[in-house]
Simulated scan of single mutants.
Amino acid sequence: MLSVEALYKAHADAVLAKLRRLGIEGPALEDLLQDVFVIALRRQAKIPKDNDSARRWLFDAARKLAANFHRLYRHKYEALDPDAIDAALAEPEDPEEHIALCNLVRTALRELSSKDVELLRRHAIDGESLPELATWLRITKSGAHVRLERAKERLRVQVARLEQGVELRGDRKPEVIEAPTSR
């Protein structure tokens, strides 16, 4: 039986290349390479004895780890960007424009159904995941995804109509927030 250290010396470059071919890049590349060999250490008794079979076993572990990596939502949509965090926490460059946008969105939300507003609030503000939304709606996760996307699209349409000055329904006036006065 080959030791994990010997496997690492013999196959680390090949496993790294395999992970790259599987679409892993950046800091995750080294992390997943280490994960492959951590798994090899934990399952040392299950690794085939001959070198070629052990190599295939390592490639299989790398393939499974890469598939799991790509399945995770955060790797597709969330990037660790300190500048983005700073920008999100910073005051808006134009407070009046920001207030106008808030008023526009608030007015558009009033034009949506209460179910759409609740769905958008739960997802965007409360941070509920699709499985949590699906449970609340008593539907499947994919059904919740469809409903969420449709609610987002209805909100986008309402905002676009308001931006163009089109009267939506009734004679509701937008709720106005006053800009903070400087002291």
Rank of each mutant, 00 (worst) to 15 (best):
T140Y: 09
L112H: 09
I125W: 08
H75T: 01
E97S: 13
A54G: 09
E128W: 07
R55M: 08
A79N: 11
L89G: 00
P131G: 04
N51Y: 02
K141R: 15
E167V: 07
G165Q: 04
V146K: 14
L168N: 05
V117R: 15
L148N: 02
A90H: 02
R154C: 00
D83A: 15
R150Y: 06
N103D: 15
V105M: 05
R122A: 11
E78C: 07
R106T: 15
R169K: 09
A84M: 10
D94Q: 14
V166C: 03
G143Q: 09
A151D: 06
R110D: 14
V176K: 13
G127A: 03
R147D: 04
E91R: 13
S142N: 12
L104R: 10
V157R: 13
L137G: 09
P48C: 03
L133P: 09
A144W: 08
D50W: 09
L168S: 07
D116N: 06
L112G: 04
R106V: 11
R122I: 02
V157A: 06
D86G: 00
I99S: 10
R147F: 06
Y77N: 06
N68F: 02
E78K: 13
A84H: 11
R63K: 14
H98L: 10
S113W: 05
L109W: 10
Y77F: 14
E153Q: 12
R138M: 14
I99Q: 14
W136K: 03
A124V: 05
A61D: 00
K173Q: 15
E97D: 10
L120V: 07
V146Q: 07
L58E: 05
G165I: 06
I177N: 04
R147I: 04
L120Y: 13
L133N: 06
R121A: 12
